[in-house]
Design a binder for these strands. Sequence first.
DNA 1: ATCCTCCCCTAC
DNA 2: TAAGGTAGGGGAGGAT
Length: 939
Amino acid sequence: MSDPYDAIQFGQVQNVLQASQERPQLFKGISIYVNGYAPQSELRRHILEHGGDYQQHLKKSSVTHILATTLTNAKIESLRNYKVVDPSWVTDSIAAGRLLPWTHYRLGFSKGPEDQSTMEQNEPVKETEQGEKRKREEEERETVIESVSPVQINTIISQKDKNNKSLDEDHDTHPDIIKNYYKNSRLHHLSAWKEELKDKVRRWNLENAGFKGRNKKGKRPENHRVVMHIDFDAFFASVSLLDRPHLKDRPVAVAHSKGAKDDSSSEIASCNYIARQFGIHNGMMMSTAKIKCPELQSVPYEFEKYKAVSDTFYQIIFEYADEIQAVSVDEALLEVASHVTQPGTGQEMDLATQIRDKIRSKTGCNTSVGVGPNILIARLANRRAKPNGQYICGLDQIQDLLSSIEVTDLPGVGRAMKSKLYEMGVRIVKDLALVPLSNLQANFGTKIGQTLHNFSKGIDDRLLSTHPTRQSVSAEVNWGIRFENEEKAKTFIDDLAKEVSERLDSQQMKGRSITLKIMRRKLGSGAPLKYLGYGDCDTFSRSTVLPRATDDNQVIAKNAWNLYKQLNFTPSDVRGVGIQIQKLEAASVSDKTQFFGAVPLNTEPVASRSLGKTKNDENTTVYKRKMVDRDVFIQLPESTRLEISDAYKVVFMEKEGTSSAVNTPTWSENRPECIGGSSTAAMGHSETSELYVSPVPDNDILDQPSFSDLPPWSQLDPTMLLALSTEMQQQILKQYGQIHEHHDKKLKINHRDFETENKFQKESRNRTTAGGTTKNTLTQMFSRNYYEDEDAPLDMSAVNELPADIREEILENERRKKNRQKNTSRSDVKKKHTPADVETRPSFCEPKLMGLTDIRDIRVLLKTWERTPENIRLLTEFVMKLAHNKDLDKARLVVLSLDQVSNVAAQGTDPQSWRAEVEELRLALKEHVFNHYRCNLRF
DNA sequence: ATCCTCCCCTAC
DNA sequence: TAAGGTAGGGGAGGAT
Ligand SMILES: Nc1ccn([C@H]2C[C@H](O)[C@@H](COP(=O)(O)OP(=O)(O)OP(=O)(O)O)O2)c(=O)n1
Ligand SMILES: [Mg+2]
Ligand SMILES: [Mg+2]
């Protein structure tokens, strides 16, 4: 029972036992992998029901048999060492009630090997693997050819030896693969728990609203904050050690790997402090950790226990806190000023002791506590206190606290920012405090720059989060994704859509925006460092906005699939998939949405989505709303309905029967709306409600006015409109507006077209500032005429008319050209410099200094401007804003003006010259320019 | 100005 | 074997 490995899958074992009672365990001890196209779900169920082991991955030793119907020659070759049999072996054996000899079902004999290098790696050759592993380093940067295994998380289910898979027998095959994955994913649990805890705190806030206001805040009139940060020591590890006291004094880590092998690529979720002495830390790979400490003991996850301890923890802090911010399952921020009448007299200390003791007595676990006047200091204090300690940081200790830490210890400074700061020569917080704000903002952006600046001085204005209602619900899987073909990808996206849909449901939410996120391996990326991991990838996302909020899995799936097709990736390159829903509404609200007559509802913004790579542009759809009465639709002949479904995206709108079919008893059936893809099979729209949304599947629509079939505004029945809710009326009116605007839209190239095709862009992004897409030309910034660049850009509307492949080539060329000659000419493909652009420009938020924009006025101002900290700040912001707006000339002039002023002042009255600021700004500008345009500003 | 999309980043 | 999820801050650039 306490065997580490079993404990992980305790629940599964139980289920297996149940299943075992009924069926003969024909396949006991047999481990089966099912190849590609075989009927997965059936087979899997059969195998599992009869005691077999269904392997998810075809990887070396554990698999004993492979089921396959067809195999390429190369594959047969690569599987030579396995027992490859026809699936009928399983069904026949079951029918026979005994295990039939596999040799009778042997599949294929190897013919001459056709070179398929990707498959060779599947050969169960241990040495290669070991050799590769040794070369691996922390950063996934190797050139070893990736061993593409025929493994797909969505195709194959696996479990380990003994334990069969616990299947939800009722369910059909796929969804539970995802469920099973999440069940074992610590990060998923972490995220899910956090949402639960936020909910819990929200509820607590509501219940205690009156009480808190009276009691606590009244007590301490001044705004002296006392923030307490509580965090369990080595949380998972501590909890897992509760039942394993014998391991307490040994280095221990929580991980999936059993630790039999030392080359496991599983990640350490949490390790105890003994292990940390070896340099081991959370998130480290087990293999790495084992090198540092071969005696490291791994213990299994016990998610239920973690959650139970966490619940106890939160119960306790509810007793003490004025306010709470749920940070994590093992961690929270508290406002506790009401407990401190005399700051700095030890009350904080006592409170911390009391709370920690209570937690220890109720959970058996150690926590550490940091207390400070703001969140930042509380966190840093906690860090200093760890493990099993507490540190109260008063104003006097702040400098000391800060001076002892590295920038990396600041919250918000992770991998990327660390490396950037290091490049700037900033390693410790003291270094950071010396960097001018302008410099930080030039490098990290306004907000982050400011935050870093503040943090370096111990300043943190943030209040505890009140946990506002969430803005998105998503589900993603970025592990084990290896799609053999499009169909597999589609199946997976369907399943993921179901998952997201369930999550929406459980939150009573619906959403109008659907985003698909895909990770795709980079062109030259080697094998991922982590087993079945995503390795070196680019990520892409595409989104679509629906006319109406949905939580329906089919709607989500359809849309996600359309987005997937837009990206047009090679399925086998995909390494991760996510679906995110935004623009959320309470489900109860959107349920009220009613059907109404012939009203055009919306045009999806999809028009601008023309994607370079799709063979035709059928994805470039414009949705027109077309209402069809449900009863009419239902009465159409089946064939006609199918026809309609093919040509149009069919949307079924209606009330959610579950909650509010009240007003429309006729609509007994309720599946909410769904949007059918134009090219895919018609949806199984059973009966249900009404209507429609028609996509017009080609881009002709973009060229000729095409909303002719929409009822003109004048013909809209005002009675009907009036009958609707105000909300609904507004929506309709808005949609009308959109549609008409749409007439004027021109087909436009979109920068995303390039992202789809190229990856160097990302590199350049990584090199420069975060987040940007391709930078505009650089040099134009210095030649005085940045506006008018003569270099005629591509006529994209013309290019867009070309066949996709040719277009692609042209664009590719264009990009290369741009990249090569980045210093001489411009070829900003993304942006057409129409005259309109030039004209519009001035209206684009012209930065002001004390209300002034003209450089002459500013020059005058500067001559007499006082050098106060506030003015310094304003000036800095002004200059950087100018730079930001690419008004480098002006930025430079301002600084030069300042320089003059300071020179004049220096020889005369004012010893307080602006000289330092001049220098700072000069450098910040150069920095900005270099970061943005990769070239040097002569200044 | 402000919004929107598509990223990147961070934390646990 | 292994289970690299996810919400939210924020930035760049474009559209409006
Ligand atoms: N990369 C990580 C980081 C954390 N966690 C999980 C396991 C941790 O136990 C828990 C809490 O995270 P902490 O950052 O609080 O780390 P610990 O509690 O393990 O250690 P400590 O807080 O003492 O530093 O979250 C994880 O699975 N993977
Ligand atoms: Mg902790
Ligand atoms: Mg924590």
